[in-house]
């Protein structure tokens, strides 16, 4: 049978192609364009190749911001994931109490980012803020504008308050999806409470937790508004995270070339970490024999 040469079906891809072009390819390519040139104005651009990239990778300020960024992201993940699961386990399962708990837990998620920053900025003030006042009254020398440890502590506490509910809600929905038969079988197998958590609940939560961790990693790695409002990146540059360093460079100093190169590196780091994490989790679930 002769194959009919007709590849018109490719035209069906056009709508998706257009959407993706406008949503991702064109903006991203604009950045790529800036990152390999030095542009002074219309008609005065110079090709720089990988120079901006090399410069950015060697920049000690950015290296420090990157380290800070990783420290922050891992710290909040290490707190929010176990805490979120714990809250989900404690939440009531049915009746009006379940609805009430869901609304209460979800509340922080509904607050805009810069409002969260403002709330905590006021909360941390030692004169009128409840947290700052209580700490200084109890003898702690608390000042987020002078003490880097205090600033870090407050930012992490703020992020935990704001985003643990996301993990809790995801885990809660995952827990609700476990059929009763699993718990019944576990009772018949005489499993302890810990074994039920370790071998039934946690494995069944894997998928929602992968989503949760990826979302939280990406979001926290891009965090901007909250620390910017709360500490402005200080004291010094102790809470200046990557996005803030980038914004300073691109908007305040208008160094579009280096900022563009930096954006690409930033993007690739998030992509790489997410990919490694996802692949690692998926490999864990495979058979050992199948890997050999």
């Amino acid at each position: 049978m002769n194959k009919i040469e007709n590849n018109k079906a490719w035209f069906f891809v056009i709508p998706v192609f257009v959407v993706v072009a406008f949503s991702a390819v064109i903006p991203l390519m604009t950045v790529v364009n800036y990152s390999v040139q030095d542009i002074f104005g219309v008609n005065s651009a110079f090709w720089t190749g990988t120079e901006w990239y090399r410069e950015m990778l060697r920049n000690p300020d950015l290296q420090a911001a990157l380290l800070r960024q990783f420290a922050f992201s891992f710290a909040i993940l290490a707190i929010e994931v176990p805490l979120g699961i714990g809250i989900a386990l404690l939440m009531p399962k049915k009746g009006w109490a379940a609805s009430a708990a869901l609304v209460l837990v979800a509340m922080p998620l509904l607050i805009p980012l810069n409002v969260v920053g403002t709330i905590w900025q006021i909360l941390a003030r030692t004169d009128i803020g409840l947290l700052g006042w209580a700490l200084s009254e109890s003898g702690v020398d608390y000042n987020i504008n002078a003490n880097a440890v205090d600033a870090w502590f407050t930012i992490i506490l703020m992020d935990v308050w704001h985003w643990t509910p996301l993990i809790a809600l995801l885990s809660y929905s995952g827990l609700r999806a476990i059929p009763d038969a699993y718990y019944q079988a576990a009772r018949i197998d005489r499993a302890s409470r810990w074994a039920v958590f370790r071998y039934i609940q946690l494995p069944k939560l894997t998928n929602v937790l992968v989503i949760g961790v990826l979302l939280r990693f990406m979001d926290s790695f891009m965090i901007y508004a909250e620390p910017f409002v709360l500490t402005g990146g200080g004291p010094g540059s102790s809470t200046t995270f990557l996005s803030q360093a980038l914004t300073t460079m691109a908007v305040a100093q208008f160094d579009l070339g280096p900022a563009a190169a930096f954006s690409i590196i930033y993007f690739l780091i998030i992509l790489a970490v997410s990919w490694v994490f996802y692949t690692a989790i998926m490999t864990l679930q495979k058979d050992k024999s199948a890997q050999q």
Binding site: I188, I200, P203
Partner: peptide
């Protein structure tokens, strides 16, 4: 007596296995 003290086993409609084991 709870199920764990009755010396019975039960097989359910949908297979119950411990996924990670």
């Amino acid at each position: 007596l709870p199920p764990e003290k009755r010396n019975i086993a039960q097989v359910f409609q949908f297979p119950v296995i411990y996924d990670t084991m």
